[in-house]
Design a protein around this nucleic acid. Structure first.
Lengths: 112, 112
DNA sequence: GAAATCCACAACCATATGGTTGTGATGATT
DNA sequence: AATCATCACAACCATATGGTTGTGGATTTC
């Protein structure tokens, strides 16, 4: 799905993840979002545009400032997708356990 | 975190997600992974290399073939990161509900 | 009205990405 | 020994990405 592409791609950048983290504390302007970083306002503006296109941020012009607000909804599909694989990192531990048990049984008076 | 960067970046490509989906059915060679797609073997080899670098696939040379196996472990950190935002898409619904309730109260005996 | 603030458009640059083709190494098959 | 199958390295191409600077349009603010 194209939506997942955009979501994961948006999350792949640490600056963008930091922007999202900041927005969990409430809406912010581009200028406010720029402050913590050592990059230009334009760079942050581009990052926010990426997040906006991915649907993770809603940007609204209020007079001279751009009010950026978090919208975590697209993360739900991403989480759903990842959740499908949950059993596989659990299963890995299961297999390890089974293997160890097998080893224990095999060594119970018998060599393999 | 660099690990998250690699994980999310790896997941941002639909071909790579399809490869991971295929690997949930068990290990596969590069040739097997290539079959379903309309791209070259080299392209898939590159994709698998990306997944390997991200730690999502373990590739092992067995004679002439490369045995590729899923390792879903890095997805756990990704899921954890996303989970932090879970409350924010719930909160959004809460706010909507609150808003609707407020509207209902205001419109108590008044039409809109 | 003038000045300052906030923002995004455009052009540019370096590098990364996803794909191709060509090719050669290495392992299996006959 | 010869051939086939499997894979990855290299070079290349087009496009995307993340950053910069320059600039100009709006909107406050003085």
């Amino acid at each position: 799905m194209i939506q997942l592409d955009a979501t994961f791609a948006a999350l792949a950048d640490p600056t963008r993840r930091a922007i999202l983290a900041r927005l969990t504390e409430g809406p912010a302007s581009i200028a406010e979002l720029t402050k913590p970083f050592d990059v230009s306002q334009q760079a942050i503006s581009k990052h926010v545009a990426v997040l906006d296109r991915a649907g993770l941020v809603r940007k609204r012009r209020e007079g001279r400032i751009s009010r950026c607000e978090l919208d975590a909804a697209p993360l739900e599909s991403a989480a759903d997708w990842i959740a499908h694989y949950k059993s596989f990192w659990a299963a890995k531990l299961d297999r390890l356990e089974t293997y160890l048990n097998t080893q224990a049984e095999n060594q119970d008076g018998e060599a393999s």
